[in-house]
């Protein structure tokens, strides 16, 4: 079984984890166009090479990021989301006028 290192729980079988999708900066849902939002939600780089992506340690619900090579099937490193997210993100409820 392949192993993955969770920044919180250490090295575990990969079957303990759930893949969570490519990491991309999120556009502001209240001001972005429906087209850009569709691109953010549905479209993927699907890179053959090194990618940064979300993973979750299912048993502890701990989300983190991994740098992985999708051609060689090797994990380069895993790291806590705080490396990228320096500040808390608050979601502002849109007023009806914001929705295009």
């Amino acid at each position: 079984m392949k192993l993955l290192t969770c920044p919180l729980n250490g090295q575990r079988n990969i079957s303990e984890f759930t893949y969570g999708g490519e990491y991309h900066p999120m556009p502001n849902p209240n001001s972005t166009s429906p087209r850009k939002w569709a691109e953010y939600v549905f479209f993927h780089d699907n890179e053959a090479g090194v990618v940064i992506e979300w993973w979750c340690h299912t048993a502890s619900s701990f989300w983190f990021l991994a740098e992985r090579n999708t051609v060689t099937d090797t994990v380069i490193r895993t790291f806590e989301a705080s490396e990228i997210f320096k500040r808390r993100i608050d979601f502002v409820e849109p007023t009806s006028g914001d929705i295009t």
Partner: peptide
């Protein structure tokens, strides 16, 4: 496989 990959190896899993 449980995650994206460009690979055609077979696994014991």
């Amino acid at each position: 496989d449980p995650y994206p990959l460009y690979h055609t190896r077979a696994t014991l899993d």
